[in-house]
Design a binder for these strands. Structure first.
Length: 440
RNA sequence: CGGAGUGUAGCGCAGUCUGGUAGCGCACCUCGUUCGGGACGAGGGGGUCGUAGGUUCGAAUCCUAUCACUCCGACCA
Protein backbone atom coordinates (compact mmCIF):
# COMPACT_ATOMS: atom_id res chain seq x y z
CA UNK A 1 0.00 0.00 0.00
CA UNK A 2 1.24 3.44 -0.89
CA UNK A 3 0.74 5.81 1.99
CA UNK A 4 0.01 8.67 -0.40
CA UNK A 5 -3.10 6.77 -1.52
CA UNK A 6 -4.03 5.37 1.85
CA UNK A 7 -6.26 6.88 4.50
CA UNK A 8 -4.20 7.29 7.64
CA UNK A 9 -5.49 10.30 9.60
CA UNK A 10 -2.62 10.66 12.07
CA UNK A 11 -2.88 13.19 14.88
CA UNK A 12 0.11 15.05 16.14
CA UNK A 13 -1.56 16.19 19.32
CA UNK A 14 -3.39 13.89 21.64
CA UNK A 15 -7.12 14.49 21.93
CA UNK A 16 -7.80 15.51 25.50
CA UNK A 17 -10.30 12.77 26.29
CA UNK A 18 -7.78 9.96 25.92
CA UNK A 19 -6.65 8.94 29.36
CA UNK A 20 -4.88 5.66 28.78
CA UNK A 21 -2.02 4.91 26.47
CA UNK A 22 -3.82 2.53 24.12
CA UNK A 23 -6.63 5.02 23.60
CA UNK A 24 -4.16 7.83 22.95
CA UNK A 25 -2.13 5.79 20.51
CA UNK A 26 -5.14 4.42 18.67
CA UNK A 27 -6.42 7.95 18.13
CA UNK A 28 -3.03 9.34 17.19
CA UNK A 29 -2.26 6.49 14.81
CA UNK A 30 -5.56 7.03 13.04
CA UNK A 31 -6.95 3.61 13.97
CA UNK A 32 -10.27 4.69 15.42
CA UNK A 33 -12.53 7.69 15.65
CA UNK A 34 -15.13 8.26 18.28
CA UNK A 35 -18.60 8.73 16.88
CA UNK A 36 -20.52 8.79 20.13
CA UNK A 37 -19.87 7.86 23.74
CA UNK A 38 -18.45 4.35 23.66
CA UNK A 39 -19.05 3.99 19.92
CA UNK A 40 -16.18 4.01 17.47
CA UNK A 41 -15.53 3.95 13.76
CA UNK A 42 -12.61 1.74 12.81
CA UNK A 43 -10.31 3.46 10.36
CA UNK A 44 -8.37 1.44 7.77
CA UNK A 45 -5.28 0.88 9.91
CA UNK A 46 -7.32 -0.16 12.93
CA UNK A 47 -9.52 -2.42 10.88
CA UNK A 48 -6.51 -4.29 9.53
CA UNK A 49 -5.43 -5.09 13.08
CA UNK A 50 -8.94 -6.01 14.17
CA UNK A 51 -9.30 -8.36 11.22
CA UNK A 52 -6.02 -10.06 12.07
CA UNK A 53 -7.02 -10.53 15.68
CA UNK A 54 -10.31 -12.04 14.54
CA UNK A 55 -8.54 -14.33 12.08
CA UNK A 56 -6.38 -15.80 14.83
CA UNK A 57 -9.37 -16.14 17.13
CA UNK A 58 -11.23 -18.00 14.38
CA UNK A 59 -8.32 -20.29 13.56
CA UNK A 60 -8.06 -21.41 17.16
CA UNK A 61 -11.81 -21.80 17.58
CA UNK A 62 -11.96 -23.92 14.45
CA UNK A 63 -8.96 -25.96 15.56
CA UNK A 64 -10.76 -26.74 18.80
CA UNK A 65 -13.78 -27.99 16.87
CA UNK A 66 -16.07 -24.99 17.19
CA UNK A 67 -18.23 -24.20 14.16
CA UNK A 68 -18.79 -20.65 12.99
CA UNK A 69 -22.15 -19.19 12.11
CA UNK A 70 -23.47 -15.63 12.24
CA UNK A 71 -26.42 -14.44 14.25
CA UNK A 72 -27.99 -11.01 13.81
CA UNK A 73 -27.35 -7.98 16.01
CA UNK A 74 -31.08 -7.39 16.45
CA UNK A 75 -33.11 -9.87 18.43
CA UNK A 76 -36.74 -10.28 19.28
CA UNK A 77 -37.78 -9.46 22.81
CA UNK A 78 -39.97 -12.56 22.85
CA UNK A 79 -36.89 -14.74 22.77
CA UNK A 80 -35.59 -13.06 25.89
CA UNK A 81 -38.95 -13.30 27.59
CA UNK A 82 -38.61 -17.08 27.34
CA UNK A 83 -35.49 -17.08 29.47
CA UNK A 84 -36.78 -14.34 31.74
CA UNK A 85 -33.85 -12.10 30.94
CA UNK A 86 -35.84 -9.46 29.07
CA UNK A 87 -36.98 -8.12 32.40
CA UNK A 88 -33.81 -9.01 34.31
CA UNK A 89 -31.18 -7.51 32.07
CA UNK A 90 -31.95 -3.96 33.01
CA UNK A 91 -30.81 -0.73 31.48
CA UNK A 92 -27.70 -2.17 29.92
CA UNK A 93 -29.89 -3.61 27.22
CA UNK A 94 -30.66 -1.32 24.32
CA UNK A 95 -34.35 -1.78 23.56
CA UNK A 96 -36.02 -0.57 20.41
CA UNK A 97 -39.29 -0.90 18.57
CA UNK A 98 -39.81 -1.53 14.89
CA UNK A 99 -42.52 0.11 12.73
CA UNK A 100 -45.07 -2.45 13.89
CA UNK A 101 -44.26 -1.48 17.47
CA UNK A 102 -42.76 -4.90 18.14
CA UNK A 103 -40.13 -4.98 20.85
CA UNK A 104 -36.61 -5.62 19.64
CA UNK A 105 -33.25 -5.35 21.27
CA UNK A 106 -29.67 -4.92 20.14
CA UNK A 107 -28.03 -8.10 21.37
CA UNK A 108 -25.72 -7.80 24.36
CA UNK A 109 -25.03 -11.57 24.12
CA UNK A 110 -26.59 -14.54 22.38
CA UNK A 111 -27.43 -17.38 24.76
CA UNK A 112 -31.13 -17.20 24.00
CA UNK A 113 -30.77 -17.08 20.26
CA UNK A 114 -28.24 -19.87 20.02
CA UNK A 115 -30.43 -21.98 22.26
CA UNK A 116 -33.39 -21.36 19.96
CA UNK A 117 -31.30 -22.32 16.94
CA UNK A 118 -30.08 -25.43 18.68
CA UNK A 119 -33.48 -26.66 19.82
CA UNK A 120 -34.96 -26.20 16.36
CA UNK A 121 -32.47 -28.52 14.74
CA UNK A 122 -30.84 -30.83 17.26
CA UNK A 123 -32.87 -33.61 18.83
CA UNK A 124 -30.44 -36.44 19.48
CA UNK A 125 -27.44 -37.01 21.69
CA UNK A 126 -25.78 -38.40 18.55
CA UNK A 127 -25.34 -34.83 17.29
CA UNK A 128 -23.40 -33.88 20.40
CA UNK A 129 -21.03 -32.49 21.38
CA UNK A 130 -21.59 -29.28 19.45
CA UNK A 131 -19.95 -25.90 19.77
CA UNK A 132 -21.26 -22.99 17.73
CA UNK A 133 -19.69 -19.55 17.68
CA UNK A 134 -19.87 -16.26 15.91
CA UNK A 135 -18.01 -12.99 15.83
CA UNK A 136 -20.54 -10.21 15.97
CA UNK A 137 -21.06 -6.68 17.24
CA UNK A 138 -22.66 -6.43 20.64
CA UNK A 139 -24.18 -3.48 22.42
CA UNK A 140 -24.26 -2.98 26.14
CA UNK A 141 -25.45 0.38 27.30
CA UNK A 142 -22.74 0.85 29.89
CA UNK A 143 -23.34 3.54 32.46
CA UNK A 144 -19.93 4.91 31.84
CA UNK A 145 -18.01 3.83 28.76
CA UNK A 146 -14.35 4.79 28.91
CA UNK A 147 -10.81 4.01 27.87
CA UNK A 148 -11.63 4.02 24.17
CA UNK A 149 -12.40 0.59 22.78
CA UNK A 150 -11.25 -1.01 26.03
CA UNK A 151 -14.68 -0.42 27.49
CA UNK A 152 -17.06 0.69 24.80
CA UNK A 153 -20.79 0.27 24.42
CA UNK A 154 -20.62 -1.22 20.97
CA UNK A 155 -17.92 -3.84 20.75
CA UNK A 156 -17.01 -6.91 18.77
CA UNK A 157 -17.28 -10.20 20.59
CA UNK A 158 -16.46 -13.76 19.69
CA UNK A 159 -18.96 -15.80 21.62
CA UNK A 160 -19.03 -19.58 21.48
CA UNK A 161 -21.69 -21.83 22.96
CA UNK A 162 -21.21 -25.50 23.75
CA UNK A 163 -23.91 -28.16 23.94
CA UNK A 164 -23.42 -31.49 25.65
CA UNK A 165 -25.54 -34.34 26.94
CA UNK A 166 -24.37 -34.05 30.54
CA UNK A 167 -22.21 -32.09 32.92
CA UNK A 168 -19.24 -34.33 32.26
CA UNK A 169 -19.43 -33.63 28.54
CA UNK A 170 -19.84 -29.93 29.23
CA UNK A 171 -16.69 -30.05 31.29
CA UNK A 172 -14.71 -31.44 28.36
CA UNK A 173 -16.18 -28.72 26.13
CA UNK A 174 -15.01 -26.20 28.70
CA UNK A 175 -11.53 -27.61 28.68
CA UNK A 176 -11.38 -27.44 24.89
CA UNK A 177 -12.10 -23.74 25.00
CA UNK A 178 -9.70 -23.28 27.89
CA UNK A 179 -6.87 -24.72 25.80
CA UNK A 180 -7.98 -22.86 22.68
CA UNK A 181 -7.89 -19.60 24.63
CA UNK A 182 -4.38 -20.25 25.88
CA UNK A 183 -3.26 -20.75 22.31
CA UNK A 184 -5.18 -17.74 21.00
CA UNK A 185 -3.69 -15.24 23.42
CA UNK A 186 -0.19 -16.62 23.03
CA UNK A 187 -0.43 -16.25 19.26
CA UNK A 188 -1.47 -12.64 19.75
CA UNK A 189 1.81 -12.06 21.53
CA UNK A 190 0.22 -11.83 24.96
CA UNK A 191 0.95 -13.43 28.28
CA UNK A 192 -2.50 -14.52 29.41
CA UNK A 193 -3.15 -16.21 32.72
CA UNK A 194 -6.41 -18.00 33.52
CA UNK A 195 -7.80 -16.95 36.87
CA UNK A 196 -10.72 -18.47 38.68
CA UNK A 197 -13.71 -16.18 38.40
CA UNK A 198 -17.07 -15.77 40.01
CA UNK A 199 -19.80 -17.51 38.14
CA UNK A 200 -22.03 -14.71 39.30
CA UNK A 201 -25.75 -14.70 38.58
CA UNK A 202 -25.21 -17.03 35.64
CA UNK A 203 -24.35 -19.87 37.98
CA UNK A 204 -22.53 -23.02 36.98
CA UNK A 205 -19.50 -24.99 37.93
CA UNK A 206 -16.60 -23.67 35.88
CA UNK A 207 -15.51 -20.13 35.26
CA UNK A 208 -12.20 -18.56 34.36
CA UNK A 209 -11.18 -15.12 33.29
CA UNK A 210 -8.16 -14.80 31.05
CA UNK A 211 -6.08 -11.92 32.22
CA UNK A 212 -3.21 -10.45 30.26
CA UNK A 213 -0.45 -8.73 32.10
CA UNK A 214 0.19 -5.13 31.16
CA UNK A 215 1.65 -2.35 33.27
CA UNK A 216 -1.33 -0.16 32.51
CA UNK A 217 -3.93 -2.83 33.23
CA UNK A 218 -7.07 -1.86 35.10
CA UNK A 219 -6.90 -4.26 37.98
CA UNK A 220 -4.31 -5.67 40.30
CA UNK A 221 -3.63 -9.38 39.86
CA UNK A 222 -1.56 -11.87 41.81
CA UNK A 223 -0.03 -15.06 40.53
CA UNK A 224 2.73 -17.60 40.78
CA UNK A 225 5.81 -16.70 38.76
CA UNK A 226 5.88 -20.03 36.95
CA UNK A 227 2.85 -19.04 34.90
CA UNK A 228 4.97 -16.49 33.09
CA UNK A 229 7.16 -19.26 31.68
CA UNK A 230 4.56 -21.88 30.89
CA UNK A 231 4.73 -23.14 27.32
CA UNK A 232 1.75 -22.63 25.06
CA UNK A 233 -0.13 -25.86 24.28
CA UNK A 234 1.10 -27.08 20.88
CA UNK A 235 -0.91 -26.67 17.68
CA UNK A 236 -1.32 -30.44 17.38
CA UNK A 237 -2.95 -30.92 20.77
CA UNK A 238 -5.71 -33.47 20.36
CA UNK A 239 -8.95 -31.69 21.16
CA UNK A 240 -10.77 -35.02 21.09
CA UNK A 241 -8.67 -36.43 23.90
CA UNK A 242 -10.23 -35.44 27.22
CA UNK A 243 -7.24 -36.71 29.16
CA UNK A 244 -4.82 -34.53 27.24
CA UNK A 245 -7.07 -31.48 27.66
CA UNK A 246 -7.53 -32.16 31.32
CA UNK A 247 -3.77 -32.42 31.82
CA UNK A 248 -3.23 -28.99 30.30
CA UNK A 249 -6.03 -27.40 32.29
CA UNK A 250 -4.77 -28.93 35.54
CA UNK A 251 -1.31 -27.59 34.92
CA UNK A 252 -2.66 -24.12 34.23
CA UNK A 253 -4.93 -24.04 37.25
CA UNK A 254 -2.72 -25.71 39.86
CA UNK A 255 -0.80 -22.65 40.98
CA UNK A 256 -2.01 -19.50 42.66
CA UNK A 257 -3.59 -16.88 40.39
CA UNK A 258 -6.27 -14.41 41.35
CA UNK A 259 -7.66 -11.03 40.53
CA UNK A 260 -7.97 -8.54 43.35
CA UNK A 261 -11.64 -9.49 43.86
CA UNK A 262 -10.76 -13.10 44.57
CA UNK A 263 -7.36 -12.47 46.11
CA UNK A 264 -6.45 -14.54 49.16
CA UNK A 265 -3.61 -12.62 50.75
CA UNK A 266 -2.73 -15.42 53.15
CA UNK A 267 -2.49 -18.06 50.43
CA UNK A 268 -0.45 -15.72 48.27
CA UNK A 269 1.89 -14.88 51.12
CA UNK A 270 2.49 -18.58 51.65
CA UNK A 271 4.25 -18.74 48.28
CA UNK A 272 8.03 -18.32 48.30
CA UNK A 273 8.69 -14.60 47.92
CA UNK A 274 10.58 -15.18 44.68
CA UNK A 275 7.49 -16.79 43.14
CA UNK A 276 5.08 -14.02 44.01
CA UNK A 277 4.12 -11.84 41.08
CA UNK A 278 1.96 -8.81 41.60
CA UNK A 279 1.02 -7.13 38.36
CA UNK A 280 -1.65 -5.21 36.50
CA UNK A 281 -4.05 -7.12 34.35
CA UNK A 282 -6.71 -6.72 31.67
CA UNK A 283 -9.51 -9.22 31.23
CA UNK A 284 -9.64 -10.32 27.60
CA UNK A 285 -11.61 -13.52 27.82
CA UNK A 286 -14.14 -15.21 30.03
CA UNK A 287 -15.40 -18.78 29.86
CA UNK A 288 -17.97 -20.61 31.91
CA UNK A 289 -20.44 -23.44 31.96
CA UNK A 290 -23.97 -22.86 33.13
CA UNK A 291 -25.62 -26.26 32.91
CA UNK A 292 -29.27 -26.13 31.94
CA UNK A 293 -29.98 -22.53 32.88
CA UNK A 294 -31.25 -21.71 29.39
CA UNK A 295 -31.98 -25.13 27.96
CA UNK A 296 -34.49 -25.90 30.68
CA UNK A 297 -36.78 -22.87 30.41
CA UNK A 298 -36.34 -22.77 26.64
CA UNK A 299 -36.90 -26.50 26.27
CA UNK A 300 -33.72 -27.27 24.38
CA UNK A 301 -33.91 -31.01 24.93
CA UNK A 302 -32.22 -33.94 23.31
CA UNK A 303 -33.03 -37.62 23.47
CA UNK A 304 -30.31 -39.60 25.23
CA UNK A 305 -29.15 -43.16 24.57
CA UNK A 306 -31.75 -44.39 27.04
CA UNK A 307 -34.56 -42.82 25.05
CA UNK A 308 -35.28 -40.16 27.62
CA UNK A 309 -35.42 -36.48 26.80
CA UNK A 310 -33.09 -34.23 28.79
CA UNK A 311 -32.13 -30.55 28.61
CA UNK A 312 -28.64 -30.00 27.16
CA UNK A 313 -25.76 -28.77 29.25
CA UNK A 314 -24.32 -25.56 27.95
CA UNK A 315 -21.34 -23.30 28.28
CA UNK A 316 -20.37 -19.99 26.80
CA UNK A 317 -17.00 -18.58 25.93
CA UNK A 318 -16.27 -14.95 25.13
CA UNK A 319 -13.36 -13.00 23.72
CA UNK A 320 -13.51 -9.31 22.90
CA UNK A 321 -11.44 -8.64 19.79
CA UNK A 322 -11.97 -4.89 19.91
CA UNK A 323 -10.79 -4.81 23.50
CA UNK A 324 -7.92 -7.11 22.55
CA UNK A 325 -6.59 -4.59 20.06
CA UNK A 326 -6.34 -2.04 22.85
CA UNK A 327 -4.92 -4.62 25.24
CA UNK A 328 -2.20 -5.58 22.79
CA UNK A 329 -1.19 -1.93 22.63
CA UNK A 330 -1.23 -1.63 26.41
CA UNK A 331 1.14 -4.60 26.50
CA UNK A 332 3.32 -3.37 23.64
CA UNK A 333 4.29 0.26 23.21
CA UNK A 334 7.05 2.71 24.01
CA UNK A 335 7.34 6.48 24.20
CA UNK A 336 7.36 6.73 20.41
CA UNK A 337 4.26 4.73 19.72
CA UNK A 338 2.85 1.28 19.20
CA UNK A 339 4.99 -1.84 18.96
CA UNK A 340 2.89 -4.50 17.24
CA UNK A 341 3.51 -8.20 17.54
CA UNK A 342 4.10 -9.42 14.01
CA UNK A 343 1.00 -11.63 14.10
CA UNK A 344 -1.39 -8.69 14.21
CA UNK A 345 0.63 -5.81 12.76
CA UNK A 346 -1.40 -3.90 10.17
CA UNK A 347 1.58 -4.20 7.81
CA UNK A 348 4.74 -6.17 8.31
CA UNK A 349 7.05 -3.60 6.77
CA UNK A 350 7.15 0.17 6.57
CA UNK A 351 9.19 1.40 3.63
CA UNK A 352 10.38 4.99 3.98
CA UNK A 353 11.67 6.90 1.01
CA UNK A 354 13.65 9.68 2.66
CA UNK A 355 13.99 11.73 -0.49
CA UNK A 356 11.09 11.51 -2.85
CA UNK A 357 12.07 12.70 -6.30
CA UNK A 358 15.65 11.49 -5.93
CA UNK A 359 15.94 9.04 -8.79
CA UNK A 360 18.11 6.53 -6.94
CA UNK A 361 15.84 6.57 -3.88
CA UNK A 362 12.68 6.33 -5.97
CA UNK A 363 14.07 3.42 -7.97
CA UNK A 364 15.30 1.53 -4.92
CA UNK A 365 11.95 1.95 -3.18
CA UNK A 366 10.07 0.87 -6.29
CA UNK A 367 12.17 -2.25 -6.46
CA UNK A 368 11.75 -3.15 -2.80
CA UNK A 369 8.06 -2.31 -2.81
CA UNK A 370 7.39 -4.37 -5.92
CA UNK A 371 9.38 -7.35 -4.69
CA UNK A 372 7.65 -7.41 -1.32
CA UNK A 373 4.20 -6.98 -2.82
CA UNK A 374 4.88 -9.83 -5.25
CA UNK A 375 6.02 -12.02 -2.40
CA UNK A 376 2.81 -11.30 -0.51
CA UNK A 377 4.57 -9.35 2.23
CA UNK A 378 2.38 -6.56 3.52
CA UNK A 379 4.26 -3.33 3.09
CA UNK A 380 3.25 0.27 3.65
CA UNK A 381 5.33 2.51 1.39
CA UNK A 382 5.68 6.03 2.74
CA UNK A 383 5.91 7.86 -0.57
CA UNK A 384 4.65 11.15 0.80
CA UNK A 385 6.63 14.27 0.10
CA UNK A 386 7.59 14.68 3.73
CA UNK A 387 10.84 15.26 5.50
CA UNK A 388 12.69 12.26 6.92
CA UNK A 389 11.87 13.14 10.52
CA UNK A 390 8.16 13.09 9.86
CA UNK A 391 8.44 9.69 8.20
CA UNK A 392 10.42 8.22 11.07
CA UNK A 393 7.93 9.57 13.55
CA UNK A 394 4.99 8.19 11.59
CA UNK A 395 6.49 4.73 11.24
CA UNK A 396 7.43 4.57 14.90
CA UNK A 397 3.94 5.72 15.88
CA UNK A 398 2.07 3.11 13.87
CA UNK A 399 4.46 0.46 15.09
CA UNK A 400 5.08 -1.77 12.08
CA UNK A 401 7.55 -4.52 13.06
CA UNK A 402 10.12 -3.66 10.38
CA UNK A 403 11.24 -0.45 8.78
CA UNK A 404 13.23 -0.26 5.60
CA UNK A 405 14.78 3.17 5.31
CA UNK A 406 15.94 4.24 1.90
CA UNK A 407 17.89 7.42 1.26
CA UNK A 408 20.72 8.85 -0.82
CA UNK A 409 23.34 8.39 1.88
CA UNK A 410 22.83 4.66 2.19
CA UNK A 411 22.33 4.14 -1.51
CA UNK A 412 25.70 5.76 -2.18
CA UNK A 413 27.14 2.78 -0.31
CA UNK A 414 24.69 0.43 -2.03
CA UNK A 415 22.71 -0.17 1.14
CA UNK A 416 19.40 0.49 2.81
CA UNK A 417 18.73 0.41 6.51
CA UNK A 418 16.57 -2.29 8.05
CA UNK A 419 15.32 -1.43 11.50
CA UNK A 420 13.46 -3.60 13.96
CA UNK A 421 10.79 -1.54 15.69
CA UNK A 422 10.82 -3.55 18.90
CA UNK A 423 14.54 -3.84 19.53
CA UNK A 424 15.57 -0.72 17.68
CA UNK A 425 18.38 -2.73 16.06
CA UNK A 426 19.47 -1.33 12.70
CA UNK A 427 21.37 -3.04 9.95
CA UNK A 428 22.70 -1.78 6.64
CA UNK A 429 21.91 -4.28 3.92
CA UNK A 430 21.95 -4.44 0.15
CA UNK A 431 18.56 -4.13 -1.51
CA UNK A 432 18.46 -7.83 -2.21
CA UNK A 433 19.44 -8.77 1.31
CA UNK A 434 16.84 -6.40 2.77
CA UNK A 435 14.13 -7.85 0.54
CA UNK A 436 15.09 -11.42 1.39
CA UNK A 437 15.14 -10.60 5.07
CA UNK A 438 11.45 -9.63 4.88
CA UNK A 439 10.32 -12.65 2.90
CA UNK A 440 9.61 -15.61 5.16
C1' C B 1 -26.92 6.47 38.70
C1' G B 2 -24.35 10.08 42.41
C1' G B 3 -20.35 13.90 42.17
C1' A B 4 -17.25 17.33 39.15
C1' G B 5 -16.36 19.66 34.54
C1' U B 6 -16.16 20.94 29.23
C1' G B 7 -18.53 22.43 24.40
C1' U B 8 -15.00 28.47 20.07
C1' A B 9 -11.57 25.83 12.54
C1' G B 10 -9.44 18.78 11.63
C1' C B 11 -6.39 18.61 16.70
C1' G B 12 -4.73 21.48 21.09
C1' C B 13 -6.24 26.04 23.24
C1' A B 14 -7.04 31.75 24.42
C1' G B 15 -11.10 35.15 24.46
C1' U B 16 -16.47 34.70 28.59
C1' C B 17 -15.57 37.43 34.93
C1' U B 18 -15.89 43.40 32.82
C1' G B 19 -21.13 42.63 25.96
C1' G B 20 -18.66 46.35 20.91
C1' U B 21 -16.17 43.51 13.43
C1' A B 22 -13.67 35.72 16.31
C1' G B 23 -7.95 34.88 17.68
C1' C B 24 -3.19 31.71 18.53
C1' G B 25 -0.17 27.07 17.70
C1' C B 26 -0.22 22.64 14.84
C1' A B 27 -2.53 20.66 10.47
C1' C B 28 -4.28 22.25 5.27
C1' C B 29 -3.37 25.20 0.19
C1' U B 30 0.37 28.29 -2.99
C1' C B 31 5.47 29.94 -3.90
C1' G B 32 10.56 29.81 -2.56
C1' U B 33 14.70 27.91 0.23
C1' U B 34 15.42 23.18 2.48
C1' C B 35 15.75 17.66 3.20
C1' G B 36 19.06 10.89 7.48
C1' G B 37 14.84 11.72 13.56
C1' G B 38 8.18 15.84 13.38
C1' A B 39 12.50 22.55 8.83
C1' C B 40 12.28 28.05 7.62
C1' G B 41 10.19 32.44 5.17
C1' A B 42 6.17 34.84 2.62
C1' G B 43 1.21 34.57 1.22
C1' G B 44 -3.71 32.09 1.67
C1' G B 45 -8.30 29.11 2.83
C1' G B 46 -11.43 27.26 6.64
C1' G B 47 -15.52 28.64 12.33
C1' U B 48 -24.17 29.95 12.04
C1' C B 49 -18.59 30.22 19.01
C1' G B 50 -23.16 22.71 20.79
C1' U B 51 -28.61 23.93 20.03
C1' A B 52 -33.11 26.85 21.02
C1' G B 53 -35.30 30.86 23.23
C1' G B 54 -34.67 35.56 25.92
C1' U B 55 -32.31 40.49 27.59
C1' U B 56 -29.80 44.46 24.76
C1' C B 57 -28.76 49.50 19.86
C1' G B 58 -25.34 45.27 19.90
C1' A B 59 -24.29 38.46 22.68
C1' A B 60 -18.88 33.55 22.05
C1' U B 61 -19.51 36.78 26.48
C1' C B 62 -25.48 38.04 30.47
C1' C B 63 -30.31 34.94 31.59
C1' U B 64 -33.39 30.37 30.79
C1' A B 65 -33.97 25.72 28.77
C1' U B 66 -31.95 21.76 26.25
C1' C B 67 -28.39 18.42 23.90
C1' A B 68 -23.64 16.28 23.64
C1' C B 69 -19.08 14.85 25.56
C1' U B 70 -15.24 14.04 29.41
C1' C B 71 -13.39 12.91 34.27
C1' C B 72 -13.98 10.62 39.59
C1' G B 73 -16.94 6.72 42.13
C1' A B 74 -20.34 1.77 42.17
C1' C B 75 -20.85 -2.44 37.60
C1' C B 76 -18.86 -5.04 32.97
C1' A B 77 -16.03 -8.99 26.85
Amino acid sequence: MRLSRYFLPILRDTPKEAEIVSHRLMLRAGMIRQESAGIYAWMPLGLRVLDKVCAIVREEQNRAGAVELLMPTLQSADLWRESGRYEDYGKEMLRIKDRHRRDLLYGPTNEEMITAIFRAHVKSYKDLPLNLYHVQWKFRDEVRPRFGVMRSREFLMKDAYSFDLDAQGANVAYQRMFVAYLRTFARLGLTAIPMAADTGPIGGENSHEFIILADTGESEVYCHRDYLQYATPPADVNFDDPAALSGIVKKWTALYAATSEKHDAAAFAALPAADQVTARGIEVGHIFTFGTKYSEPMKANVTGPDGREVPVHMGSYGIGPTRLVAAIIEAGHDDKGIVWPEAVAPFKVGLANLKMGDSASDAACAKIYGALENAGVEVLYDDRDERPGAKFATLDLIGLPWQIIVGPKGLAQGTVEVKNRRSGAREDLSLEAAINRMIP
